[in-house]
């Protein structure tokens, strides 16, 4: 059975001013990982980035009509995996249909999901009841 060593659970209003807070949590956690043998500073930046992108995405897709809407972010550090889940209550989107960026004709948007896919090991998006979940995994080698 997997043992959860650390779990962080944060709920924020759907406002971009909280991105710094969420990203900073990821950055701090990366520095605390005992089992990670890779470049810790790079991982710190990548977790900051991935959490920032995923939370921005959730805020964008949230139901703007509801001022009390929130985004929930959970981070779990397991023995061999870092698990991130970002929950929103918006209309959702089709992760599979998000294209790769066109590197020869770069556009101003559409790079967020690319970052998450490139820097992490697994990304899925699912809907259960009225809640969407973006689940991101980074294996800790």
């Amino acid at each position: 059975m997997e043992t959860t060593e650390i779990q962080v659970d944060v709920i924020i209003p759907t406002q971009t001013k909280y991105l710094d807070l969420i990203g900073s949590i990821g950055e701090r956690i990366a520095r605390e990982l005992d089992n990670y043998s890779g470049d810790r500073e790079a991982l710190a930046y990548h977790l900051n980035l991935v959490l920032t992108e995923a939370t921005t995405n959730a805020i964008k897709h949230s139901s703007h009509k509801d001022m009390k809407d929130t985004v929930r972010i959970t981070l779990r550090i397991l023995e061999d995996e870092l698990n991130i889940k970002v929950y929103d209550h918006g209309q959702g989107f089709d992760l599979e249909s998000v294209p790769m960026p066109d590197f020869d004709n770069p556009k101003e948007d559409g790079m967020g999901i690319y970052f998450i896919r490139t820097l992490m090991d697994s990304v899925t998006y699912s809907k259960k009841d009225e809640t969407n979940v973006l689940e991101i995994k980074k294996y800790l080698k």
Partner: peptide
């Protein structure tokens, strides 16, 4: 110290 995809997008714009 940190730039995300929207920051890159702003500079590209």
């Amino acid at each position: 110290k940190f730039v995300d995809s929207s920051g890159l997008g702003a500079l590209l714009a």
